[in-house]
Simulated scan of single mutants.
Amino acid sequence: MPSTRTAAAKPKVGRPKTGTTQERHAQFLAQALELFMTEGVARTSIARIAATCGVSTRTIYERYSNKDALLIAALKHMVEQDVRAMTNLEQLADPSLATVLTHIGRLMLKKVLEPRMVSFFRIAISEVSHLPELARAVKEVGPERIYQMLANIFKTYADKGELPQLNFMRAAESYCELLIAGPRHKALFGVQEADWDAEAHIAFVVQLFLRGLHGMEQK
């Protein structure tokens, strides 16, 4: 008989027993992505994912042709959830663009600086040269979705006369770079200051960015 200690150490894995097929599949994708993020793409096999998620390798291959296809699907699922959270602005009464950008900035920065996401960025940097098609797919389902969402927001405010008409996609890319690049770089190399203030960083970026956009009206 196994000891109580051994039994308690076993992780709770496997296919969820309740919920719709769609909900069970969403949980499977989340579990698979967690493995990719914590153990690395190269070290995470289909067999490992199957064992952790409580499904057969045949079940996985019936839906996904290979590991890269599964990774892309898992990333896409995560990004779609994140985009929905970023655009869920119903609780903001008649929001200014600064309020919207602050709200989105908090969600983006929190996601980018999650320890598991930092680990995934490190893995991606080391493996991108071996998987160029994966890098392209990640760009399509990740940053480009966020850029398009922001570009649509900027156009909405420009159409109301609150922003100049400009290259909205380029503006979206610039906002994300201002917001994310520095903190992510420091997190990747473990050099983030202990007293770094995320809220102060977001407020500075939003103010700098909006002043820059409005300054373009003068030209």
Rank of each mutant, 00 (worst) to 15 (best):
N167A: 04
R24G: 09
G40M: 06
V79H: 01
R5Q: 08
L33T: 06
L113Y: 04
L150M: 14
L29M: 05
K17Q: 14
L71Q: 04
I180V: 14
S45T: 15
M1N: 14
L208I: 10
F204C: 10
F204I: 07
S96C: 02
K110E: 13
R48E: 07
Y64R: 12
L35E: 04
L71N: 02
E114M: 13
D195L: 08
L134K: 13
A124G: 10
L29P: 04
T156E: 11
E90A: 12
H201T: 06
T18E: 08
D195E: 10
L109V: 12
R211P: 03
L113P: 06
V141H: 02
T99R: 08
R15F: 01
L113M: 13
V13L: 14
Y64T: 13
G182C: 00
K76P: 01
S126C: 06
M117L: 13
A172R: 04
Q22F: 11
L92R: 00
E162M: 09
Q218A: 14
R106Y: 01
V191I: 12
Q27E: 15
S65M: 11
Q22A: 15
S3F: 08
E80V: 03
T4S: 00
R5V: 06
M37G: 01
R5T: 15
C176F: 12
E173A: 05
E173D: 02
F168W: 03
E90I: 02
T38H: 08
G105E: 04
D159E: 13
L92A: 03
L89I: 12
V79S: 02
M86R: 13
T59V: 00
I72N: 00
Q207I: 02
A171K: 03
I104Y: 01
K219Q: 14
T44W: 00
V128W: 09
